[in-house]
């Protein structure tokens, strides 16, 4: 049986543990997957930047021994856009919560996808605002509870992958914290992709979403991911969420196009 192992070499040695996350939180699993993906690609730590916004997910970069930046709420992709254009040789990984990426940061999300800029965006979708105390998020399903939706969510939830696809991302994938090995591989493919890649990770927040919606503990939530998702292609069993690569196409990335533009601009007066 395949199993995952922690890669201590990529973690910052001092003072950072125990982590800020609650017991049973799935964000650490996503972090582990990112590290294993980086390791599998043999990337130099010096050439990786991890940029985050604000939220429980936003705290992820502090633990990894990369060039790391915890920015402002919603704007991580914009910061990352500047960095990538300044340093096209670096792999820039952006980690965001669902609120960070799609509520306050929604505009930057669709425009990063439209530009197809060579960033790897990992959206930790726990369907709630973890850090601020369980408020509704743009991915909270209709009928679910949140501290600001005490009678149930009445707004439709965003489908992150569909938005990414419609906005022009070259690579879109979805997985869950239950499927950690699959997640490693999807993240590795996302990093390798030349263009904007989005990996949505359904992640358990047992303290916020879990308690408000009586899902049971973290283990129960992981089992839910196991039982309610499918890697099936073609005819998807009804009610199941599809995992795996959803979009993989070759369109020129922004940095690549910009570099071409620089060359042609020099020839013009």
């Amino acid at each position: 049986m395949e199993y995952t192992v922690p890669e201590h070499e990529y973690l910052r040695p001092h003072k950072k543990f125990p982590s800020v996350w609650c017991a049973g939180c799935g964000i650490g699993t996503v972090l582990g997957a990112i590290i294993r993906a980086v390791r599998s690609l043999n990337l130099s730590k010096d050439k990786i930047a991890m940029i985050s916004g604000i939220g429980c997910t936003g705290r992820m970069p502090v633990y990894v021994d990369f060039n790391t930046m915890h920015t402002t709420h919603g704007r991580a992709l914009a910061f990352a856009t500047g960095l990538k254009l300044a340093r096209p040789d670096m792999e820039v990984i952006v980690v965001m919560g669902d609120g960070d990426a799609l509520a306050i940061g929604g505009n930057h999300f669709i425009h990063a996808a439209r530009r197809n800029i060579e960033l790897t965006a990992i959206v930790v979708n726990n369907r709630i605002y973890g850090m601020t105390g369980g408020q509704l998020s743009p991915t909270t399903p209709v009928g679910d509870r949140a501290t600001t939706a005490p009678y149930g969510q009445i707004e439709q939830a965003f489908d992150i992958a569909k938005i990414a696809e419609a906005s022009g991302a070259a690579f879109v994938a979805r997985s869950t914290t239950y499927h950690a090995i699959e997640l490693d591989r999807l993240i590795a493919r996302g990093i390798q992709k030349k263009g904007f890649s989005v990996i949505e990770v359904l992640t358990q927040c047992p303290v916020g979403y879990g308690q408000l919606n009586q899902t049971g503990d973290a283990v129960e939530m992981l089992k839910w991911f196991r039982d309610n998702t499918t890697a099936a292609r073609g005819k998807v069993p009804s009610g199941k969420i599809v995992r795996g690569v959803l979009v993989d196409c070759d369109i020129p990335g922004y940095v690549e196009s910009y570099q071409k533009l620089m060359k042609t601009s020099k020839k013009r007066t």
């Binding site: 920015t71 402002t72 914009a78 910061f79 856009t81 500047g82 254009l85 300044a86 505009n107 910009y258």
Partner: peptide, 22 residues
């Protein structure tokens, strides 16, 4: 590099990102 961003928040954020990129 010149880039027209989607708004001013993104503009200054990208500027800060580019600055830390050197």
């Amino acid at each position: 590099v010149f880039i027209q961003m989607e708004d001013e928040i993104a503009s200054l954020s990208a500027v800060i990102g580019a600055s830390i990129g050197g």
